[in-house]
């Protein structure tokens, strides 16, 4: 692992800690060991990976003391970055949220079944024509030509 990666990982962990705080039995997002997965997932598309690396680099240069700052200063840095670099900020937030909400520990906490939408899909009550009882009372109102 290069030192550049290491710095990026530390920075991501710190950002994630401020973005998604601890709740219940779960630590804050940065302490959940998700950084490797974020980096691997970002690499599944070249366009996104480039955006992601340029976003983390932009954040690092905008907040060089982030890792050693207090939580309130970190929050201020993130808000400034969100306001000044919305595309970069959105890139980081998007993948942090995606990876956090695909984690089984999070699924358990929020009561999500955790399966991809397919192949199981979901159950719904079948179509019931009685729902149309009121709608059918209306006279045709399309404009005749």
């Amino acid at each position: 692992m290069t030192s550049q990666h290491s710095t990026q990982e530390q920075l991501l962990e710190a950002i994630m800690d401020r973005m998604i705080p601890a709740i219940g039995d779960l630590p804050s997002a940065g302490q959940m060991g998700l950084v490797d997965e974020i980096i691997q997932l970002a690499a599944k598309q070249k366009r996104f990976e480039d955006l992601f690396h340029s976003a983390t680099a932009a954040f690092e240069s905008s907040s060089p003391d982030f890792l050693t700052s207090s939580e309130s200063v970190q929050d201020g840095n993130l808000k400034t970055f969100e306001s000044n670099n919305p595309e970069h900020f959105n890139t980081i937030r998007t993948i942090v949220y995606i990876v956090y909400y695909k984690d089984s520990r999070v699924h358990k906490r929020i009561g999500w079944d955790g399966q991809p939408p397919q192949p199981q899909g979901y159950e719904m009550d079948p179509w019931d024509e009685s729902v149309l009882v009121n709608a059918r009372k209306r006279e045709p109102f399309w404009r005749k030509v």
Binding site: R18, M19, I20, P21, I23, D75, L78, N90, R93, T94, Y97, I98, Y100, Y101, K102, V106, H107, I110, W112, P117
Partner: peptide, 30 residues
């Protein structure tokens, strides 16, 4: 709507806020 990843990133509207209100807002929208 869709699942938690989609909802957290906003769905058809803005993303759920980061920070202290995050969990409460996710629970409200999911």
């Amino acid at each position: 709507s869709l699942g938690p990843g989609w909802v957290a990133n906003g769905g058809f509207t803005n993303a759920i806020p980061w920070g202290d209100s995050h969990h409460e807002e996710l629970e409200k929208r999911l």
